[in-house]
Amino acid sequence: MIEVWGRRSSSNVQKVVWALDELGLAFKRHTVGGGFGGVRDPSYLKMNPNGLVPVLQDGDITMFESNAIVRYLAARYGEGSLRPSEPKALALAEQWMEWQQLNVVPLISTIFWNQVRSPPAQRNDKAIAESNARLPGLLAIADQALKSSQWFAGDRFTFGDIVLGVLYWRYSCLDCPKPDTPNIKRWFAALKERPAYQKWIMVQVGSNPAEWTANEKALG
């Protein structure tokens, strides 16, 4: 059976378990990382010397790095579905996964960490303001891409929707200004109809460190 190491509250773990569920694959998850610890244990560091989550084991394959894991799962188990079989659609899925990770994720993560994970005295208001100022322009790029297609790689959900899908849920929960992006709004509404998204991504985030810790503990 496929095994995954990582706490449910981790956005990187969420990418992997969401992909597994979309593919209909059975798996066993081990709760480690964050307040649960375990990632500095020698046995864990042997699997991932970075001491981060997630880790995936599938037979004789042991992997870390969430986006690489998602692409592996899509290639091995989701050809023609989670992984497009058409070269153009595959290229778009790859492109948008990279673009989302490199451009949008750092900004949403900055707002999230400062608003939710950091005590008020440690919040970097300048970093929050800068991220809020830059996000509308980037989200406008994604919104334009979704103007002519239902999903980032065309007319079907693919791994190209997963990175932003995870982080956009968190973004929707944050107390910050949000630009008018009607095509992203439609895309997001479609994500929220997917059972696997509801199960793994639409979880409580909280608005401060105490709430985050309580939610993390409850999720496991």
Rank of each mutant, 00 (worst) to 15 (best):
I184S: 00
E79Q: 13
A214S: 14
D175R: 13
P136M: 04
P136V: 02
G78C: 12
A145Y: 00
R186K: 13
F27P: 07
G165Y: 01
F112L: 15
R7D: 07
W96E: 00
A189N: 05
V16C: 09
N132W: 06
V39G: 00
L25C: 04
P195E: 08
A75S: 14
D161T: 11
W187T: 00
V104K: 02
D143F: 03
I162Y: 01
I111C: 09
K88P: 01
W151M: 01
K126S: 13
V39Y: 03
A210C: 05
V4Y: 02
Q14G: 06
S149P: 05
N208M: 08
I141V: 15
R156L: 09
M1C: 07
P119A: 15
V104D: 05
A196R: 11
L219H: 10
L219N: 02
V4F: 08
T62D: 06
G220Y: 08
P49N: 08
N124K: 12
W113E: 08
V4C: 07
A153I: 00
G24P: 03
L56H: 01
E65T: 10
W169K: 03
K185G: 11
E79D: 12
R29D: 10
W96G: 01
L82A: 05
G59V: 07
V203T: 15
R83G: 01
A153H: 01
Y171S: 09
Y168G: 02
K126L: 11
T158F: 09
G80C: 04
K199A: 14
L20M: 05
K126E: 15
D155G: 10
K88H: 08
